[in-house]
């Protein structure tokens, strides 16, 4: 057969970016925090993480193959692995394995595949799984094991978030004195889910993603700034509310802001929309944390704003070229 030329419309070159590069890029960004959580929580963390990732990949494979009956399998595009990782980060390290598998089934099965697979889901699958577990198994989901490196005596088992809520409920600012210092929290010496422990390493990964242009700064910065301002105001008004830095470095805020809220599929498309989304998540998080029934509000805030994403996309268009005629730059 003779050598046929190929014809197509332009462009004829591609920037060699790919879904895999982005997905595995996020996974790499999560690595430092992953290793840290293994150090902090020991073997339990390894088990939880492995179960979560393997279960997610398995369900993705099984559903594509046997239920959707698609020929092309998508387990290697990295999205299921990432979902598994993020789900694992949202779980305590002593969770029974069957609960993890249930969470993975919900995350992949309900959160992702029912909508049609990658790119179609409305809610972040990992968060859907976590919220499902949090509501179904509140006790198991909030009983933490000791952080092996924990230096805070006497309060093992009570996370900073629980302390913060306790202070508000009892109207007693002195409860907050039991909180670890914000530096400790920043470095990762507190209680919590696996991904909640080290803000420093998570931010390091976030910087990596920004450098690799996997994400833009809009969502993480808007969330963190909003929380800082809102929590700061509350703290100034009434000292029963914790100091803003402690609020930011506690719980899953950094994990949520940098890795979960920035999920491509479920976040708005335009920068303006992303800022609105971020600010709303920040506000909702503080509201739920301080006055809600659950100590942690991040996952709920993101899930709620996921639902608003299509609406934001409809109303927040990027600034069109020529819309604002700029002042003359040249004479």
């Amino acid at each position: 057969m003779e050598n046929k030329l190929i014809v197509s419309l332009s462009p004829h070159v591609h920037g060699s970016d790919s879904v895999e590069k982005n997905m595995y890029g996020v996974c790499i960004a999560l690595l430092p925090a992953l290793i840290a959580s293994f150090c902090f929580f020991g073997l339990g963390a390894v088990t939880v993480m492995l179960t979560s990732v393997l279960a997610c990949v398995f369900f993705e494979w099984a559903i594509t193959k046997f239920i959707l009956k698609r020929d092309k399998l998508t387990i290697l595009d990295g999205s299921a692995i990432l979902t598994g990782l993020l789900l694992g980060f949202n779980l305590p390290s002593n969770l029974p394995i069957w609960i993890i598998i249930l969470g993975a089934l919900f995350a992949i099965g309900v959160g992702k595949m029912t909508f049609g697979g990658l790119g179609q889901n409305i809610f972040n699958p990992a968060l859907a799984g976590r919220v499902f577990l949090l509501i179904s198994f509140p006790v198991q989901m909030t009983s933490w094991t000791d952080n092996v490196l924990d230096h805070v005596d006497g309060y093992s088992g009570a996370t900073p978030l629980a302390l913060m809520q306790k202070a508000i409920l009892e109207k007693d600012p002195s409860v907050l004195n039991n909180l670890p210092s914000s530096l400790d929290m920043f470095l990762g010496q507190t209680e919590g889910s696996m991904g909640e422990v080290s803000a420093l390493l998570l931010l390091l990964g976030c910087a990596f993603m920004l450098w690799k242009k996997i994400i833009t700064w809009h969502i993480p910065v808007s969330i963190i700034l909003t929380v800082f301002v809102f929590a700061g105001l509350l703290h100034l008004l009434d000292p029963v509310y914790a100091a803003p830095l402690q609020v930011i470095f506690s719980g899953g805020l950094i994990l949520g802001a940098c890795y979960m809220a920035t999920d491509y599929v479920t976040s708005p498309m335009s920068h303006k929309g992303q800022l609105i989304y971020g600010v709303a998540i920040g506000l909702l998080t503080v509201v739920i944390r301080n006055w809600g029934a659950y100590p942690e509000g991040m996952s709920f805030a993101i899930i709620i704003m996921n639902a608003f994403t299509p609406l934001i996309n409809t109303y927040c268009k990027p600034k069109r070229f020529g819309e604002v005629v700029r002042k003359e730059a040249a004479k």
């Binding site: 030329l5 014809v7 197509s8 419309l9």
Partner: peptide, 22 residues
């Protein structure tokens, strides 16, 4: 006989913009 190979969106309308087609 196909002279060239079309490599683009699977749509006749799009292919019609490439020229004569394959």
């Amino acid at each position: 006989p196909r002279l060239v190979e079309y490599d683009g969106a699977t749509s006749c309308k799009v292919q019609a913009m490439v020229g004569m087609g394959e």
